[in-house]
Design a protein around this nucleic acid. Structure first.
Lengths: 415, 415
DNA sequence: GAGCTTTATCTGCAAGGATGATAAAGTTCG
DNA sequence: CGAACTTTATCATCCTTGCAGATAAAGCTC
């Protein structure tokens, strides 16, 4: 059925050149605004005339506007360019096990409004009430605003093409047509993504400037469960259409605790918030509400709390060591409440990873806590925004077209 | 030091359009030769005139030639096009722990000559004697041939930029400037790659035609050690410059056997050929030379051998289950001698993976043995050939240029 | 204020693919 | 046999892209 002959190849044309360069410009301007045409020319290597042409096209399309003139550096002063933040707005939704957050972001990816509500009730009813709140917010504050898209991040297995949540053990949801529901309610295109993936995306867009060149990043999101998001070559790794569960169910110990997936010793059963709190309760006999509370206790000198966090850090380190060696990312980011205890867990995680690495000296692995407070929410913004730009998809088409294939001769020469 | 301002952006121009389309054509012709201009037009969606222009350019550059006219399908008969196999030759070298193989391949990626020699002696001396044999072969059979590149696949950690083998525990080599040595001896550009990565590449290029659309593939190479190669989006995942060790040192059991890396229960200590043979010896008290021999024994009804293979299959399945869930590749390929026992190990591996997967029904995961006998050798061919085509690199440049970045506001709104 | 630098624009050019007409070489069928 | 139709490949023309070099605008320096 999947015949080679039926595959449509996507070729490249002048329009692609224009679109790609235009998008590069847009991102460049957004990244370094304010910026002058001359600076763009220097950064891109394009001729000044070409730069003007492209910039003026962007201005004509109202994606960019010309601000005041900047200070002269010994010659004609530059005219500063800015991304027109009002040219596109998106809605970001982060559905968590306890609470869900929705937010409005402008074209610059900046959060304008952010509100939370408890996650409760039947999935569909909850989503509709969430949409209702969003519609209220829009009516009250953004009546004249045109939204381009909605980005949703959810803990669980996502069918990206359909925009449905296939299953989420932690939410207790199954087969929820998230996109269908929200598109019906809101009337904007909805893009659904796994929370850890969104979080990884957030680091890519909002992460520290020193990491501008980073192309490969692993995000470890520690919440009720434990998820991982993987950025490879500056792109979210999504694997096959359905199925990217992340490394939460990587088994680290065949004799470990039983996991909801039926196996033993999954990473999630050892290092998630639930595992951490359970472990604390097992040791002390007292229940505690959240990992944030546990961190407070540890910082106040509670030895049991401290040891519990240290144990979690060790398990995190174990799993990260496996992945660090296997994927060799440039950066590993840990997010979730536990990242608030970085002074405690950071060194332990690093130590674990270093002890496993064969060549710690030559490998430049950066391990750090997340740079935003709720990465899965911040990630939902680029999830929505990226769909305002087509070229990413076009790149994919190009790459697909170039994968070669060699027919093997009937007999293979033995050795 | 890594300032954003210093990053040179790579823009797109007319030349890129031409190069990319030309390369797409070349691959298309190679994949489906013989093919007519009209068929190319249908496959690409380009106009007949455009197709002619590009094809004639390729013919002028001697990369393609026009063969005899094909059979008419009711009108003017097509002129068949073929890739000029003689337009480029490459040398492939696969350095193994026991033996090493070198081969000559034409531009179609077809093996023309293949020879083996034992891997022994000091690394540098061995590489020079290997180069000497290759030079002899060239002198005898390919005196008039122009080679474009040399691809080398080695088990171990590679510094791709330098072309050096950083370390190979299994070979017992360390800090060997493979590229420098071979380029000095042979005079052609040398590209060095990890053996499992090369093997993954081999599946991408030589794999079954049904998998033409496959973009994500995991190769598990079981030799003395155990390595993994990962293809993501049709591209080899190489991670940071130095460091991709693969998942061989993923720990599956904190109480497992001690590994050379200092940890316990690494996948390699459980499922590699060495582990398998050690396990057989531990059970039976008798030593055996190779896994191939072990498979023969099992097929002859030796219960101990059969059980040994089954145990290895279970461990392979364990590791693969971890990775399948975390990376969600479309295809997982297992290579090495043990793949010869696919009837025995295949079902067991599948079972292990299925039992771990939360949703086996909806996930379309293809697990199969390697489609070539020595995948690391076959992989060395595309390693060399791919450098004859620039666009892959250019795509990378494009993507890098488009990665956006948002400056965070000073204060992040709490929730 | 002359000369220089920096910034932005303008005008013509080369090269890519798109388009539609045309030629070439068969098949089909009355 | 030959007119009509198909399939395949080419040609001349057009639009768009980025490129190049000249030119204009606006400030600094001495």
């Amino acid at each position: 059925m999947k015949r080679a002959d039926n595959r449509k190849l996507h070729m490249v044309g002048l329009r692609d050149v224009r679109d790609i360069n235009q998008t590069v410009f847009l991102h460049l301007i957004r990244e370094r605004q304010p910026i002058s045409r001359a600076e763009i020319a220097k950064a891109t290597g394009l001729r000044a005339g070409t730069v003007s042409a492209i910039v003026n096209r962007l201005i004509r399309e109202k994606l960019v506007y010309e601000g005041v003139a900047g200070p002269s550096s010994g010659g004609r002063p530059p005219k500063y360019l800015y991304v027109n933040a009002e040219s596109a707005y998106v809605i970001a939704i982060d559905i968590g096990v306890r609470d869900s957050v929705y937010a409005v972001s402008d074209f610059n990816g900046r959060l304008l409004t952010q509100r939370a509500m408890l996650t409760k009730g039947e999935p569909e009813a909850f989503l509709r009430s969430l949409a209702g709140e969003i519609k209220d917010l829009i009516g009250a504050q953004y009546a004249r605003t045109r939204f381009k898209a909605v980005g949703v991040s959810i803990p669980g297995l996502i069918d990206r093409d359909e925009g449905t949540l296939v299953i989420s053990p932690n939410l207790g949801w199954k087969d929820i047509p998230v996109r269908a529901i929200l598109e019906e309610e809101l009337g904007y295109p909805v893009y659904v993504e796994n929370d850890a993936n969104a979080a990884a995306f957030a680091e890519l867009w909002y992460g520290p400037l020193e990491e501008v060149g980073v192309r490969t990043l692993l995000f470890v999101l520690v919440v009720e469960g434990l998820g991982t998001g993987l950025i490879i070559n500056g792109e979210l790794h999504v694997g096959s259409r359905v199925g990217l569960g992340g490394f939460g169910h990587m088994s680290l110990d065949p004799n470990g605790p039983l996991c909801s997936c039926g196996r033993r010793g999954c990473w999630e059963t050892l290092a998630s918030n639930r595992a951490t709190l359970t472990r604390y309760r097992a040791v002390t006999g007292t229940s505690i509400g959240s990992v944030t509370d546990l961190i407070s206790l540890a910082q106040q000198g509670d030895q049991a709390a401290l040891e519990t966090l240290r144990a979690t850090a060790a398990y995190l380190g174990e799993g990260i060591a496996n992945l660090a060696h296997g994927l060799s990312p440039e950066t590993i980011v840990i997010g979730g409440e536990i990242a608030g205890a970085w002074q405690i867990i950071g060194p332990l995680i690093r130590e674990k990873v270093q002890s496993r690495y064969i060549l710690p000296s030559r490998i430049n692995l950066n391990i750090r806590p997340a740079s935003v407070q709720r990465p899965s929410l911040f990630g939902a913004i680029p999830i929505a925004l990226q769909h305002c730009f087509h070229p990413a998809q076009r790149f994919d088409a190009l790459k697909r077209a170039v994968t070669p294939r060699i027919k093997l001769p009937a007999k293979v020469a033995g050795r």
